[in-house]
Amino acid sequence: MKLLKRSTIAAATVAGILAVAASPAAAIVGGRDATHAYPGMTFVGVLYPGIGTAQCGGTLITPRVVLTAAHCVSDEFVAPQVEAVPAERITVHIGSNDRTAGIVATAEKVWLHPDWQWLEQPAGTPVSDLALVKLTQPVPAGLMPVGARQARPSEPLRLIGWGLTQYPVPAGYPLPTMLQQRTITVLPAAACQGGLIGPGETCTSTGACFGDSGSPALTWHPGRHPRWEEVGLGSRETSDPQDPNANPCDGPMIYTNVAYPPFRTWIADTIRAGHTRGCLCRPTVRSLDKKASARLDRLKPHLTR
Protein backbone atom coordinates (compact mmCIF):
# COMPACT_ATOMS: atom_id res chain seq x y z
CA MET A 1 0.00 0.00 0.00
CA LYS A 2 1.24 3.48 -0.83
CA LEU A 3 0.50 6.43 1.41
CA LEU A 4 -1.25 9.28 -0.39
CA LYS A 5 1.01 11.92 1.07
CA ARG A 6 0.10 15.08 -0.81
CA SER A 7 -2.21 17.80 0.40
CA THR A 8 -5.45 18.10 -1.49
CA ILE A 9 -6.09 21.45 -3.18
CA ALA A 10 -8.91 21.91 -0.69
CA ALA A 11 -9.86 20.01 2.44
CA ALA A 12 -11.64 20.22 5.76
CA THR A 13 -10.05 19.92 9.20
CA VAL A 14 -10.68 22.57 11.83
CA ALA A 15 -7.02 23.62 11.92
CA GLY A 16 -6.81 24.07 8.17
CA ILE A 17 -9.98 26.10 7.90
CA LEU A 18 -8.98 28.42 10.73
CA ALA A 19 -5.42 28.80 9.43
CA VAL A 20 -6.60 29.96 6.04
CA ALA A 21 -9.27 32.15 7.59
CA ALA A 22 -6.51 34.40 8.94
CA SER A 23 -5.44 35.06 5.36
CA PRO A 24 -8.58 35.53 3.23
CA ALA A 25 -8.57 33.79 -0.14
CA ALA A 26 -8.61 35.07 -3.68
CA ALA A 27 -8.77 33.05 -6.95
CA ILE A 28 -6.74 31.04 -9.58
CA VAL A 29 -3.05 32.03 -9.53
CA GLY A 30 -2.02 34.07 -12.56
CA GLY A 31 -5.54 34.18 -13.93
CA ARG A 32 -8.02 36.93 -14.66
CA ASP A 33 -11.73 37.53 -14.34
CA ALA A 34 -13.66 35.09 -16.49
CA THR A 35 -14.37 36.61 -19.90
CA HIS A 36 -17.72 34.86 -20.27
CA ALA A 37 -20.10 32.51 -18.49
CA TYR A 38 -19.26 28.80 -18.35
CA PRO A 39 -22.39 26.63 -18.35
CA GLY A 40 -22.84 24.61 -15.20
CA MET A 41 -20.01 26.23 -13.20
CA THR A 42 -20.91 25.76 -9.54
CA PHE A 43 -19.72 27.18 -6.25
CA VAL A 44 -19.87 24.46 -3.59
CA GLY A 45 -20.06 25.54 0.05
CA VAL A 46 -19.78 22.95 2.84
CA LEU A 47 -20.88 24.12 6.28
CA TYR A 48 -18.92 23.08 9.35
CA PRO A 49 -21.06 24.22 12.31
CA GLY A 50 -19.24 26.60 14.62
CA ILE A 51 -16.31 26.92 12.21
CA GLY A 52 -17.44 28.31 8.87
CA THR A 53 -18.09 27.34 5.27
CA ALA A 54 -15.42 25.53 3.27
CA GLN A 55 -15.06 26.40 -0.41
CA CYS A 56 -14.85 24.15 -3.47
CA GLY A 57 -15.97 24.22 -7.07
CA GLY A 58 -18.04 21.84 -9.13
CA THR A 59 -20.08 21.56 -12.31
CA LEU A 60 -23.77 20.92 -12.93
CA ILE A 61 -23.82 17.91 -15.28
CA THR A 62 -27.55 17.12 -15.08
CA PRO A 63 -30.31 19.41 -13.77
CA ARG A 64 -30.02 17.71 -10.35
CA VAL A 65 -26.41 16.49 -10.16
CA VAL A 66 -23.17 18.38 -9.44
CA LEU A 67 -19.78 16.77 -10.12
CA THR A 68 -17.01 17.70 -7.66
CA ALA A 69 -13.99 16.25 -5.83
CA ALA A 70 -14.57 13.47 -3.28
CA HIS A 71 -12.35 15.16 -0.72
CA CYS A 72 -14.57 18.26 -0.86
CA VAL A 73 -17.61 16.36 0.37
CA SER A 74 -16.01 13.72 2.60
CA ASP A 75 -16.40 14.21 6.35
CA GLU A 76 -12.92 14.92 7.66
CA PHE A 77 -14.04 14.52 11.27
CA VAL A 78 -14.34 10.74 10.81
CA ALA A 79 -11.17 10.35 8.69
CA PRO A 80 -9.36 8.12 7.91
CA GLN A 81 -12.64 6.26 7.44
CA VAL A 82 -14.57 7.44 4.41
CA GLU A 83 -17.96 9.01 5.01
CA ALA A 84 -19.82 11.68 3.08
CA VAL A 85 -20.59 15.06 4.64
CA PRO A 86 -24.29 15.24 5.64
CA ALA A 87 -25.99 16.41 2.46
CA GLU A 88 -27.98 19.16 4.19
CA ARG A 89 -24.71 20.99 4.96
CA ILE A 90 -23.93 21.47 1.26
CA THR A 91 -25.18 24.57 -0.54
CA VAL A 92 -24.41 25.40 -4.16
CA HIS A 93 -24.61 28.58 -6.26
CA ILE A 94 -25.08 27.93 -9.99
CA GLY A 95 -25.35 30.10 -13.10
CA SER A 96 -23.27 33.16 -12.19
CA ASN A 97 -19.60 34.13 -12.30
CA ASP A 98 -20.23 35.76 -8.91
CA ARG A 99 -20.00 32.97 -6.34
CA THR A 100 -22.42 34.81 -4.02
CA ALA A 101 -25.11 35.07 -6.71
CA GLY A 102 -26.85 32.70 -9.12
CA ILE A 103 -29.39 29.99 -8.33
CA VAL A 104 -29.04 28.66 -4.79
CA ALA A 105 -29.77 24.97 -4.14
CA THR A 106 -29.14 22.47 -1.37
CA ALA A 107 -28.01 18.85 -1.52
CA GLU A 108 -30.14 15.78 -0.96
CA LYS A 109 -27.55 13.05 -1.35
CA VAL A 110 -23.79 12.61 -1.80
CA TRP A 111 -22.24 9.75 -3.79
CA LEU A 112 -18.51 9.29 -3.21
CA HIS A 113 -16.59 7.19 -5.69
CA PRO A 114 -16.34 3.80 -3.94
CA ASP A 115 -12.55 3.59 -4.32
CA TRP A 116 -11.83 7.02 -2.81
CA GLN A 117 -9.80 6.95 0.42
CA TRP A 118 -8.24 9.65 2.57
CA LEU A 119 -4.80 8.19 3.12
CA GLU A 120 -3.91 4.84 1.59
CA GLN A 121 -4.26 3.63 -1.96
CA PRO A 122 -3.26 0.25 -3.41
CA ALA A 123 -0.27 0.80 -5.72
CA GLY A 124 -1.29 1.29 -9.34
CA THR A 125 -4.97 1.90 -8.64
CA PRO A 126 -6.74 5.23 -9.25
CA VAL A 127 -7.08 7.66 -6.36
CA SER A 128 -10.65 8.20 -7.59
CA ASP A 129 -11.05 11.70 -6.11
CA LEU A 130 -14.51 12.43 -7.52
CA ALA A 131 -18.06 12.58 -6.20
CA LEU A 132 -21.60 13.41 -7.25
CA VAL A 133 -23.94 15.65 -5.28
CA LYS A 134 -27.66 15.19 -5.94
CA LEU A 135 -29.69 18.36 -5.36
CA THR A 136 -33.10 18.54 -3.72
CA GLN A 137 -34.66 19.78 -6.96
CA PRO A 138 -33.71 20.39 -10.61
CA VAL A 139 -31.88 23.63 -11.39
CA PRO A 140 -32.89 25.57 -14.54
CA ALA A 141 -29.34 26.35 -15.65
CA GLY A 142 -26.93 25.38 -18.40
CA LEU A 143 -25.09 22.08 -18.05
CA MET A 144 -21.39 21.29 -18.39
CA PRO A 145 -20.75 18.26 -20.66
CA VAL A 146 -18.27 15.66 -19.45
CA GLY A 147 -15.69 15.12 -22.18
CA ALA A 148 -15.16 11.75 -23.84
CA ARG A 149 -11.57 12.36 -24.97
CA GLN A 150 -8.74 12.45 -22.45
CA ALA A 151 -6.37 15.43 -22.58
CA ARG A 152 -2.88 14.74 -23.93
CA PRO A 153 0.52 16.20 -22.91
CA SER A 154 1.18 19.68 -24.36
CA GLU A 155 -2.54 20.22 -24.93
CA PRO A 156 -3.93 23.53 -23.57
CA LEU A 157 -6.66 23.40 -20.93
CA ARG A 158 -8.77 26.17 -19.41
CA LEU A 159 -8.89 26.21 -15.62
CA ILE A 160 -11.69 28.11 -13.88
CA GLY A 161 -12.44 28.53 -10.19
CA TRP A 162 -12.70 30.73 -7.11
CA GLY A 163 -9.50 29.58 -5.35
CA LEU A 164 -6.45 31.56 -4.19
CA THR A 165 -4.77 33.98 -6.62
CA GLN A 166 -1.56 34.07 -4.62
CA TYR A 167 0.09 32.13 -1.83
CA PRO A 168 0.80 33.02 0.90
CA VAL A 169 -2.03 35.53 0.99
CA PRO A 170 -1.26 39.06 2.30
CA ALA A 171 -3.18 40.07 5.42
CA GLY A 172 -6.35 41.96 4.59
CA TYR A 173 -6.51 40.67 1.04
CA PRO A 174 -10.12 41.02 -0.18
CA LEU A 175 -12.21 37.89 -0.40
CA PRO A 176 -12.94 37.12 -4.08
CA THR A 177 -16.36 36.80 -5.60
CA MET A 178 -15.71 36.71 -9.36
CA LEU A 179 -14.79 33.55 -11.23
CA GLN A 180 -11.21 33.39 -12.51
CA GLN A 181 -9.81 31.67 -15.60
CA ARG A 182 -6.38 30.71 -16.87
CA THR A 183 -5.15 28.65 -19.82
CA ILE A 184 -2.54 26.09 -18.77
CA THR A 185 -0.81 23.08 -20.34
CA VAL A 186 -1.09 19.34 -19.79
CA LEU A 187 2.26 17.96 -18.60
CA PRO A 188 3.66 14.42 -18.79
CA ALA A 189 2.66 12.36 -15.76
CA ALA A 190 6.32 12.27 -14.67
CA ALA A 191 6.10 15.97 -13.77
CA CYS A 192 3.58 15.09 -11.04
CA GLN A 193 5.32 12.05 -9.53
CA GLY A 194 5.86 14.09 -6.36
CA GLY A 195 2.10 14.00 -5.86
CA LEU A 196 1.86 10.26 -6.44
CA ILE A 197 -0.07 10.62 -9.68
CA GLY A 198 -1.79 7.45 -10.81
CA PRO A 199 -4.21 6.08 -13.41
CA GLY A 200 -7.18 8.30 -14.15
CA GLU A 201 -5.31 11.51 -13.34
CA THR A 202 -3.90 14.41 -15.36
CA CYS A 203 -0.81 16.49 -14.56
CA THR A 204 -1.17 20.21 -15.33
CA SER A 205 1.10 23.21 -15.19
CA THR A 206 0.76 25.84 -12.45
CA GLY A 207 -2.54 27.65 -12.10
CA ALA A 208 -4.83 26.07 -9.53
CA CYS A 209 -4.52 26.78 -5.81
CA PHE A 210 -6.34 26.15 -2.55
CA GLY A 211 -10.08 26.58 -3.02
CA ASP A 212 -9.99 25.29 -6.62
CA SER A 213 -10.68 21.70 -5.59
CA GLY A 214 -13.50 20.18 -7.58
CA SER A 215 -13.37 23.02 -10.12
CA PRO A 216 -13.06 21.96 -13.74
CA ALA A 217 -10.30 21.76 -16.31
CA LEU A 218 -11.92 22.39 -19.68
CA THR A 219 -11.11 21.66 -23.28
CA TRP A 220 -12.63 23.47 -26.26
CA HIS A 221 -14.63 21.20 -28.53
CA PRO A 222 -14.91 22.81 -31.99
CA GLY A 223 -17.20 21.77 -34.77
CA ARG A 224 -20.82 22.24 -35.66
CA HIS A 225 -21.79 22.83 -32.04
CA PRO A 226 -18.66 24.30 -30.40
CA ARG A 227 -18.58 24.13 -26.63
CA TRP A 228 -16.44 23.72 -23.53
CA GLU A 229 -16.20 20.19 -22.10
CA GLU A 230 -14.93 19.12 -18.70
CA VAL A 231 -12.00 16.71 -18.76
CA GLY A 232 -10.67 17.15 -15.23
CA LEU A 233 -11.45 18.37 -11.72
CA GLY A 234 -9.02 19.77 -9.16
CA SER A 235 -7.58 17.19 -6.77
CA ARG A 236 -4.19 18.05 -5.21
CA GLU A 237 -0.84 19.81 -5.41
CA THR A 238 2.60 18.23 -5.69
CA SER A 239 5.01 20.28 -3.56
CA ASP A 240 7.39 18.66 -1.07
CA PRO A 241 5.51 18.39 2.27
CA GLN A 242 8.84 18.25 4.10
CA ASP A 243 9.95 21.64 2.75
CA PRO A 244 8.59 24.45 4.97
CA ASN A 245 9.42 27.03 2.28
CA ALA A 246 7.66 25.22 -0.56
CA ASN A 247 4.93 27.13 -2.34
CA PRO A 248 2.15 24.56 -2.93
CA CYS A 249 0.59 26.77 -5.60
CA ASP A 250 3.77 27.20 -7.65
CA GLY A 251 4.16 23.76 -9.16
CA PRO A 252 2.34 21.13 -11.19
CA MET A 253 -1.16 20.17 -10.08
CA ILE A 254 -3.04 16.88 -10.28
CA TYR A 255 -6.56 16.80 -11.71
CA THR A 256 -8.88 13.81 -11.63
CA ASN A 257 -9.39 12.82 -15.27
CA VAL A 258 -13.18 12.66 -15.65
CA ALA A 259 -12.78 11.55 -19.29
CA TYR A 260 -11.07 8.37 -18.01
CA PRO A 261 -13.47 5.63 -19.23
CA PRO A 262 -14.00 3.90 -15.83
CA PHE A 263 -14.86 7.27 -14.26
CA ARG A 264 -17.25 8.22 -17.08
CA THR A 265 -18.94 4.85 -16.64
CA TRP A 266 -19.24 5.30 -12.87
CA ILE A 267 -20.75 8.77 -13.30
CA ALA A 268 -23.34 7.55 -15.81
CA ASP A 269 -24.21 4.36 -13.91
CA THR A 270 -24.54 6.12 -10.56
CA ILE A 271 -26.84 8.82 -11.92
CA ARG A 272 -28.95 6.21 -13.70
CA ALA A 273 -29.19 3.83 -10.72
CA GLY A 274 -29.49 6.46 -8.00
CA HIS A 275 -26.86 4.74 -5.86
CA THR A 276 -23.26 3.57 -6.06
CA ARG A 277 -21.60 0.26 -5.29
CA GLY A 278 -19.59 -0.41 -2.13
CA CYS A 279 -15.90 0.31 -1.69
CA LEU A 280 -13.63 -2.07 -3.59
CA CYS A 281 -10.56 -0.88 -1.73
CA ARG A 282 -9.15 -2.10 1.57
CA PRO A 283 -10.85 0.07 4.24
CA THR A 284 -8.58 2.38 6.23
CA VAL A 285 -9.47 2.03 9.90
CA ARG A 286 -6.46 3.24 11.85
CA SER A 287 -6.23 6.55 13.70
CA LEU A 288 -4.39 9.50 12.19
CA ASP A 289 -0.90 9.99 13.61
CA LYS A 290 0.96 13.32 13.49
CA LYS A 291 2.70 12.48 10.21
CA ALA A 292 -0.54 11.49 8.54
CA SER A 293 -2.29 14.61 9.82
CA ALA A 294 0.47 16.81 8.38
CA ARG A 295 0.10 15.14 5.00
CA LEU A 296 -3.63 15.80 5.11
CA ASP A 297 -3.20 19.56 5.29
CA ARG A 298 -6.79 20.85 5.19
CA LEU A 299 -6.90 23.85 2.91
CA LYS A 300 -10.49 24.83 2.10
CA PRO A 301 -10.61 28.57 2.74
CA HIS A 302 -12.91 29.73 5.51
CA LEU A 303 -15.42 32.12 3.96
CA THR A 304 -17.48 34.88 5.49
CA ARG A 305 -20.35 35.96 3.29
Rank of each mutant, 00 (worst) to 15 (best):
residue 101 A to I: 10
residue 109 K to L: 02
residue 91 T to C: 05
residue 96 S to W: 07
residue 92 V to M: 03
residue 108 E to L: 02
residue 95 G to W: 00
residue 90 I to T: 00
residue 91 T to H: 13
residue 110 V to E: 07
residue 117 Q to A: 11
residue 99 R to N: 15
residue 103 I to T: 10
residue 108 E to R: 08
residue 91 T to N: 10
residue 94 I to S: 03
residue 99 R to G: 13
residue 100 T to I: 12
residue 102 G to M: 02
residue 94 I to Y: 08
residue 103 I to D: 06
residue 93 H to L: 11
residue 103 I to S: 13
residue 92 V to F: 05
residue 100 T to L: 14
residue 114 P to C: 15
residue 96 S to R: 07
residue 105 A to W: 12
residue 102 G to Y: 00
residue 104 V to A: 01
residue 117 Q to F: 05
residue 95 G to H: 05
residue 96 S to F: 05
residue 108 E to H: 06
residue 119 L to S: 05
residue 117 Q to R: 12
residue 104 V to R: 09
residue 107 A to I: 03
residue 91 T to E: 12
residue 102 G to F: 08
residue 115 D to Q: 06
residue 98 D to A: 14
residue 89 R to H: 11
residue 116 W to M: 07
residue 117 Q to M: 12
residue 118 W to R: 13
residue 96 S to H: 03
residue 109 K to G: 00
residue 116 W to N: 00
residue 90 I to L: 06
residue 110 V to C: 00
residue 100 T to A: 15
residue 90 I to V: 06
residue 115 D to V: 02
residue 107 A to H: 09
residue 116 W to Y: 04
residue 99 R to M: 15
residue 108 E to F: 05
residue 110 V to Q: 04
residue 90 I to Y: 03
residue 107 A to V: 02
residue 111 W to A: 00
residue 113 H to P: 04
residue 109 K to F: 07
residue 92 V to A: 05
residue 115 D to S: 07
residue 112 L to R: 01
residue 113 H to K: 11
residue 108 E to N: 07
residue 92 V to K: 01
residue 91 T to Y: 10
residue 106 T to D: 02
residue 103 I to P: 07
residue 89 R to F: 00
residue 115 D to C: 06
residue 111 W to M: 02
residue 116 W to P: 06
residue 113 H to R: 11
residue 107 A to E: 03
residue 102 G to Q: 08
residue 117 Q to H: 13
residue 110 V to A: 10
residue 98 D to M: 13
residue 118 W to T: 15
residue 94 I to V: 09
residue 101 A to P: 01
residue 90 I to D: 03
residue 111 W to Y: 04
residue 97 N to L: 05
residue 108 E to G: 06
residue 93 H to N: 11
residue 93 H to E: 01
residue 104 V to T: 08
residue 106 T to H: 09
residue 100 T to R: 15
residue 99 R to S: 15
residue 118 W to N: 12
residue 102 G to I: 00
residue 115 D to Y: 09
residue 102 G to E: 06
residue 115 D to L: 01
residue 90 I to G: 04
residue 102 G to T: 03
residue 91 T to I: 14
residue 115 D to M: 08
residue 106 T to L: 07
residue 99 R to D: 15
residue 115 D to N: 08
residue 118 W to H: 14
residue 94 I to F: 02
residue 105 A to F: 11
residue 110 V to T: 00
residue 115 D to H: 05
residue 99 R to H: 15
residue 92 V to H: 01
residue 92 V to C: 09
residue 98 D to H: 10
residue 104 V to F: 05
residue 106 T to G: 08
residue 110 V to D: 03
residue 112 L to Q: 03
residue 113 H to W: 08
residue 111 W to Q: 01
residue 113 H to D: 12
residue 112 L to M: 07
residue 93 H to Q: 12
residue 89 R to D: 02
residue 118 W to P: 13
residue 96 S to P: 03
residue 95 G to Q: 10
residue 116 W to G: 00
residue 110 V to L: 02
residue 113 H to C: 09
residue 103 I to W: 10
residue 99 R to L: 15
